Simulated scan of single mutants.
Amino acid sequence: MTTIAPDLAERFRTDGFAFPVNALTPAEAGQALAECHTYLRTVSAAGGALARYATFPKIHLVSTWADRIVHHPAILDAAEALLGPDLLVWSTNLFVRPAHSGSSLAWHQDAVYLGLNGFQQHAARVWVALTDTTVANGTMRYARGSHLRGTLPHQFSGSELEDIMRGEEITVDIDEAAAVDVVLKAGECSVHHLAMAHCSGPNHTADGRFNLAIDYISPQVSPTEGEDSALLVRGTDTGAFLPETRPTADFDRAALQQFYSAVARRQKRIDQVVLNRDSQDRGEADRTQDPA
């Protein structure tokens, strides 16, 4: 049994995050990084939906290195300490900040895009470092306690390409003094609440930064609308989600069929979530302009 810090769940509840959490060994992290590079070369050469969805949201359904990480006992023990004994993987996301990249992400919350009921108490994102994460290579920053404010309004901060590439930004003030840099060694991970406000900076180093994010949920979570699927990784009960199965080999036929179905289903649902949110935001803006 993995040793989990006794205050992990308390820090998660009060701060909205906790790190560092021991996950992969240095050797496991090195192997996963090498396999990740091979995976990226393979999907890039394949093109099509594999390339389009190379970094989200179902990497674990076609790649055994990602499947191995989402089932890693140390990571599951941490997730169980936060969410209970029944665990599903809803999504995997690969975050790569290339060497000497000027890219960055504005302050934002993951929850506003996901369309999940019950995420407040029954979901967590685990951010696994496949390389060291530092301020110099653009690691994440958390705004301590921001998850307690609920989901916040977002909009693009400007119309320039750079603004759009940075993504939608929270439109209320973030206390920079409460910001915490997520500094991890390769193999360690952090956990954060889906309503945690966070951002990341450019990579000023000669090496790429690689992180695999895993969204764990319990069966109490359900889609706000439409069908969705998830992979049971510990315990029992898939709740409101269609069940997924583990890949037996990288990119085998059954895995690919499941992957294509799952990402199409997810994309359709998220597109509707975003459309509904945009319509709601426009309605609220209209009401603000017309008090009558």
Rank of each mutant, 00 (worst) to 15 (best):
M1I: 12
P6Y: 11
L8A: 03
R11T: 05
D15V: 11
G16H: 15
G16V: 10
G16P: 12
A23M: 11
A27T: 12
A32G: 05
Y39K: 02
T42G: 00
V43G: 01
S44W: 00
G48N: 08
G48L: 07
A51R: 13
A54M: 10
T55K: 14
F56P: 00
I59H: 02
L61D: 03
A66N: 00
H72K: 04
D77Y: 07
D77R: 03
A78K: 00
G84N: 08
D86F: 08
D86N: 14
L88Y: 03
T92G: 00
F95P: 05
H100Y: 15
H100M: 12
S101E: 03
H108L: 05
A111H: 10
L116V: 10
G118R: 01
H122F: 10
A123Q: 10
V126Q: 06
W127G: 13
W127F: 13
A129I: 07
A129D: 02
T131H: 00
D132T: 08
D132K: 04
V135S: 06
A136N: 04
R141S: 14
L148P: 04
G150T: 04
L152S: 04
P153N: 01
F156Y: 14
E160T: 15
L161G: 12
I164T: 06
M165A: 15
G167A: 07
T171K: 11
V172C: 15
A178V: 06
V180H: 01
D181Q: 04
V182C: 11
S190Y: 02
V191M: 13
H192E: 06
M196C: 07
M196R: 09
H198V: 04
H198N: 06
S200F: 05
G201N: 10
P202R: 14
T205A: 11
T205V: 11
T205F: 15
D207G: 12
R209C: 07
F210Q: 08
N211G: 14
L212G: 04
I214F: 13
S218R: 06
Q220I: 07
P223Q: 03
P223A: 02
E227Y: 09
S229C: 14
L231C: 07
R234Y: 04
D237M: 07
G239V: 08
P247S: 08
P247D: 09
A249F: 01
F251Y: 01
A255C: 07
L256R: 14
Q257C: 09
Q258I: 06
Y260G: 04
V263G: 03
R265V: 00
K268M: 12
R269Y: 05
Q272G: 09
L275D: 06
D278H: 00
R282S: 07
Q289T: 00
Q289V: 00
